[in-house]
Amino acid sequence: MSTIPDAGERVPLACPSCSPIEQTVHEIIKPDGQSTVRCTECGHVHKEAVERPREIQVNVVVSQDGDSLSTTVDAPAEESVEVGDEFIVDTPEALLQVRVTAIETGPEQRVDEARMDEIETVWSRVVDNVTVNVTVHPNDTRRDASRSLKMQVPGDYEFTVGEVESVGSEEFRVEGVHVRDDTGYRFDKLDHDGDVAFAKDVKRVYGRDTTTAAWSAW
């Protein structure tokens, strides 16, 4: 495959007219060794040597709700990836947004960051639509009456400590949220009113049953 972009493609380049240091989006007008390009910010036309980055296929394992599948993605060879990064994987079933959970560079060799051409396998989990495990405690002292629920929600759904959630005909007030290790939260447990976590970051939600709670006028 040619390393020169086709006419009409857009590439990031410095513009000698309006942005000589920071890159702007340029449109390829005439592909060549020295391609003719137009800055989309100011319209300036100039010539630049433009090449596509070398791409390789990277093995990716995608996990979702206890199941996993293996696939490959095309990626720039010199691009780096690290645990916690998110990207799109095109599978026969659907386009999935995934988050990197581990990077394997060799047998039993795992790192937090690596270049694509150094990687043997990227391990990931789906984060665009997720299943969240919920433990609901009763609204009285019966500890043995706690029960487990599952919520199917978008990955960017927000759980807020102190707010009421519903699953079918059941309701519970969020009392705490355990977040996963591959997230950037300061604490692994959120338990103060107003604390917020995205569903894709959640390991488990803990709540207090409000379905049969007695409500006053205030």
Rank of each mutant, 00 (worst) to 15 (best):
R99P: 04
L13S: 12
L95F: 13
G168R: 06
V136M: 11
R142D: 15
K30G: 00
E118A: 11
D182T: 15
S166Y: 06
A75T: 09
V62R: 10
A49P: 02
A14H: 11
D191F: 05
D209E: 11
G194R: 13
F159P: 06
S80Q: 13
P16L: 06
F172V: 05
N133Y: 05
V45I: 15
K203C: 00
S146M: 10
W218I: 10
V174Q: 12
S80A: 12
M116F: 12
D191A: 12
E41I: 00
R186C: 01
E22A: 13
N139C: 09
P12S: 11
V11G: 09
L13Q: 13
A14W: 01
T183A: 04
F172Q: 10
G194I: 06
S124D: 08
R208W: 00
D117E: 12
E55C: 10
P76W: 03
E9W: 08
D117I: 01
E108Q: 13
D74C: 00
V161Y: 14
T40D: 09
R54F: 08
L13E: 05
P107G: 08
L69Y: 01
T210V: 15
D67H: 13
A213R: 07
G207C: 01
I28T: 10
V122E: 03
N59H: 09
A199F: 07
F198M: 14
A75D: 00
D195G: 03
T36V: 08
Q34T: 08
R186W: 03
P138H: 12
D144Y: 13
C15E: 08
D85A: 13
R204H: 02
S169T: 14
A213F: 00
V202H: 01
Y185Q: 08
E170L: 15
S124E: 09
E51G: 02
S19Q: 07
K150Q: 15
D74A: 07
M151H: 05
E79A: 14
H192T: 15
H44L: 00
E118I: 02
D188E: 09
P31A: 02
S19G: 04
A75P: 00
V132M: 10
V202M: 01
W218F: 04
A213V: 08
E118C: 03
D112Y: 03
I103P: 07
Q34R: 14
V126E: 12
T210P: 03
T105A: 05
C42E: 02
E120Q: 14
A145F: 10
K47H: 05
E120F: 02
E118G: 06
P31E: 05
A145M: 12
R143N: 11
D209R: 13
Q23I: 02
W218Y: 08
G184L: 05
E113T: 12
H137F: 11
K47T: 04
L13G: 12
V136Y: 11
E108P: 01
F172M: 11
P12R: 14
P16G: 07
V179T: 14
E170W: 12
R38M: 08
R204M: 06
A75Y: 03
R180P: 00
S63Q: 12
L190W: 10
I29P: 03
T72L: 02
E9H: 12
I103Q: 04
H44A: 06
E170M: 14
H26Q: 09
R10T: 15
A217N: 11
N133G: 10
E51F: 11
Y206L: 05
E22W: 04
R143H: 10
K200V: 00
R38V: 03
E48W: 04
E108D: 14
A199M: 06
G66W: 03
M116N: 15
